[in-house]
Amino acid sequence: MNAAAEEVFSSEEKDILQEVMNIAFGQATAELAEVIDIFVILSVPNIKVVKGRDLPGYFINEMDGSSVVNLIEQNFLGKFSGQAMLIFPSGAEKELIKLFNQENAEGTYDVDIDTLEQETLIEVGNILIGACIGKITELLSDFVTYDPPRLVVQDLAESSPSHFPVDEDSFAISIRTVFRFEQQNVEGYLFLITKQRSIKWLKKALQSFLESFM
């Protein structure tokens, strides 16, 4: 975690948060494989606290420079609220179709390839986001509802702070994981950006998580 995290979390809270995320992403990996046959590897989540106004720069930094991407964004609402952003490098949609839509490739759907690619990205994104957030909120005894996911092809370099659900002066927690699909060589990033008002709840929920073992 980074310096700004010191302002928001105690060191114990940071440790609990990291462990909760480790467990959540680990369980999501296992359950995606067992339940819906998606073999995906999620890296150890990297947690940072970022000021709203610094988010655009932060993304470009984290994305290793490739700023034109397919972005699937989805708001989630519960005590744990915010925005999930799933980022695939452009071109990934072609690989994902091979992985995900074999039954569609045989002509089940009467649509052009662009639509099929876009809808595949949205479907994969929706399930990945749902799995990760579902596991986090399950561990923290919350449950959330979601907006339908939206796909935007975007140049991150041009995104402004107003794009994000966080005031410029508020803190956001960014939870980042790199995921890789095993059968196809596709990598992407998942960011969960939580609103400041979730932070208060999160601190309590982390304590309750720990106390549940006593």
Partner: peptide
């Protein structure tokens, strides 16, 4: 009764997320 529909059902039952079947793709 297709893999695609079953996969979405499973993900809702397992993760408690929401799934969408757009007119654009599915009609």
């Amino acid at each position: 009764d297709q893999p695609h529909f079953r996969r979405n059902c499973k993900s809702v039952l397992q993760f408690g997320n929401f799934c969408y079947f757009s007119q654009r793709l599915h009609k």
